[in-house]
Amino acid sequence: MKLCDLLNEKTIIPELRSTDKTDLINELIDLFKNDPRVNDLPKVRQRVLEREKIMSTGVGKSFAVPHGKTDGVNELICAFGKSSHPIEFDSLDQQPVHLVFLLVNHDSSVSMHIKLLSRISRLMTKDEFREKLIEAKTAEEIQQAFAIEEKDYLDL
């Protein structure tokens, strides 16, 4: 399993409409309305927002990775969003975000959850990759950028 396999045109937003943190997270979670992998969308929303209260997942370099584990999903879901306008996210470096990766896994999936977070973090720390994502205009281009960046990685 690779991140690029988990993303598709339905789960990538090339230009987010939201202007604040909570709306942004909700905009990404709303992509999974009527998704059979989700059995309780409000629970997913609650878990991700609760996690943000503990500590912001705005890890710096204009990137955030809101995430959580809950039995509100039957299996892993993830989404990616990009914004040309800065969104305040209480990030560790006090800078607004432009790139957001949402990851929600089932409660029992501890190991995979950590592996995925680690992979996301590893990719997103590369300046060149972030620039490619910022330059990408369509969901297809974003998905392709992930595929290229991950081609040398083994499946998780």
């Binding site: 190991s111 950590i114 592996k115 680690s118 992979r119 590893r122 040398d152 990685y153 083994l154 998780l156």
Partner: peptide
């Protein structure tokens, strides 16, 4: 041991 592997 949990690992992430890159082969280039």
């Amino acid at each position: 041991i949990s690992v992430d592997v890159k082969k280039n």
